[in-house]
Amino acid sequence: MDVTYKIGKGLIVSAQHARGTYSLFVDAIRHITYLKIPPVRSVLYKQIYFTGIEALNKVALIGILIGIVIITQVANIVGFNPVLTGRILVWTVVRELGPLFVAIIVIARSCTAIAAELGSMKANREIDALITMGIDPYAYLVMPRIIGISASVFMLAFYFQISAIAGGLIVSSLFTDILFYEQLKGVFSVLSIFQVAVSLIKSAIFGLLISTISCYHGLRVKSSITEIPQVTTLAVMQSLFVVLIFDGIITVVSFI
């Protein structure tokens, strides 16, 4: 009885969060025309800077390391074969790891920051202050963050994939007689526009999910500062969970 009650309650709460997140997303997107207003664009640029540009070096480093690890493991199992290593790099990095790793990095950096920032603005009545200035918080705070994070995840995923492939191939060309160019040809022989498109669309969807979930939980804070750590944790956990679910769905729909 107790277990059934807890499961039922959990499901109802999850459904309420899903509904709230969806309606926040719809409300935010309805305000997209506000991007023509300079202060709103300024929020968008700041978000792209914090989420996208400031994360570039970390994403590149992680990408290179992942590329090296994959190439080393593949070479250990099957030896250096340019076509096979290229194929495995494309399968792992472009199809899966690129969007997923970038999503995890953005969840760790920006999801927490946004949930905490909006939560603190809500608790300190800064959002009420915006409303009294006649400024719609969905237009000024939520929409530019959703667009900024989605664009950043999209660009970072592309950057991650290039770094991982380049890192892997450079290391492999250093330790074998196979030229970098030959290996690159191996990658391009298996890389299709469809795979790249699916990967980038997946990244953009991850960005939309992460940003909307972060904003939703941040705005759930009522009046107490003590709610902020709770909503931040929930935002991170839900973002991870939802990203993994959507990753599975998109992969199954696209490649099976």
């Binding site: 603005m121 800064e126 915006l130």
Partner: peptide
């Protein structure tokens, strides 16, 4: 929101946007 443009509030805590 148009109506609220005609209202000014000076908040006790300042009502400033922290970022």
């Amino acid at each position: 929101y148009d109506t609220l443009k005609k209202v000014g509030v000076v908040w006790e805590n300042g009502g400033v946007i922290s970022n």
